[in-house]
């Protein structure tokens, strides 16, 4: 009896310690990045163009590019991920083909993103001839994000209590209507949380974009909203350097005198945006869940 109590106490202490270590590492890291970078970040930094050799450049275009590529990635990923998740959760039979699909998804999920970047270069950039572009970048990121999205949707659907699904079927809903009317609404909070979380992941991704969206941005005219114009920010066929690619580039081959400052500032912005994504995923998800369950 004494011994069991002791074991229990020890386990609690050890586990708490590990948890504390993780929290310390995380806060130290965030604190470091933010404290270094926050002084650089001001309105001017966020809204001015980067410069290639003079000091005092901003990150306006890169910030826009990051969000814009994220938008397109989600436009591709969400429907595909939903379709895949619905298929895996509701239609896939328990057989070898399904097992094979599952292995494919898992392999895809574990591929290093630089490999996906190379794949993007080969297929989207070169084979289709679209060149370095937002579209190529978004498609590459879609492949990067799709396995996670499929799994998120599948798990969310599977987590809906069976009795709810049977409730729909017993009321004379077809299988498809049961999915759209009963399962998806119930799974919606978890799916949404998953989507926002993966937004953070996609937003911070650099390696997959180096050779797909490219490392340059043409001169952009934010007044030009014609998506076919070459200087329009909305043009998806133009190359686009994102914020994380920019940080990497400035750091590794930049020649501006204030490259440390720009990199630090950029990193602070990047981390802040990702934090916002993660926190809002939690807040939004639990708010929705509460709203649905009235608990």
């Amino acid at each position: 009896m004494q011994r069991r109590k002791l074991a229990d106490k020890t386990a609690t202490v050890v586990l708490t310690m590990f948890a504390a270590i993780i929290v310390i590492i995380l806060t130290a890291l965030l604190g470091y990045v933010l404290s270094l970078g926050i002084q650089q970040v001001n309105w001017d930094f966020l809204t001015s163009k980067s410069s290639s050799f003079r000091a005092g450049g901003g990150i306006q275009d890169q910030l826009f590019n990051s969000f814009y590529i994220l938008l397109w990635t989600m436009i591709f990923t969400i429907p595909l991920g939903l379709a895949g998740g619905i298929y895996m959760a509701e239609y896939a039979k328990d057989n070898r083909i399904t097992a094979f699909i599952r292995i494919c998804i898992e392999t895809l999920a574990s591929l290093p993103s630089i490999v996906l970047g190379m794949f993007g270069l080969l297929i989207f950039v070169n084979a289709t001839g679209m060149g370095y572009s937002i579209l190529a970048g978004a498609l590459t990121l879609t492949i990067f994000n799709l396995p996670i999205m499929i799994r998120t949707c599948e798990n969310a659907l599977r987590a809906v209590p069976l009795e709810l699904k049977e409730g729909g079927l017993a009321l004379g809903y077809t299988h498809w209507r049961t999915i759209t009317r009963v399962l998806l609404p119930s799974a919606f909070p978890s799916i949404l949380t998953g989507i926002i979380l993966s937004c953070g992941l996609v937003f911070g991704e650099a390696a997959a974009l180096l050779y797909s969206a490219g490392m340059t941005t043409p001169k952009l005219d934010f007044g030009n909203l014609n998506p076919f114009a070459s200087d329009s920010p909305l043009n998806i066929m133009r190359p686009a350097e994102t914020l994380s690619v920019h940080i990497w580039k400035v750091n590794s081959e930049g020649i501006i005198p204030d490259l440390r400052d720009v990199a630090d500032g950029g990193a602070a912005v990047l981390v802040t945006v990702i934090l916002i994504f993660n926190i809002s995923a939690r807040v939004f998800g639990s708010w929705l869940h509460k709203k649905l369950t009235a608990k």
Binding site: P161, E163, E166, G167, A170, S186
Partner: peptide, 9 residues
């Protein structure tokens, strides 16, 4: 069913 299963609406 055994467990009440109203929709979350």
């Amino acid at each position: 069913f055994q467990r009440p299963n109203p929709f979350p609406n």
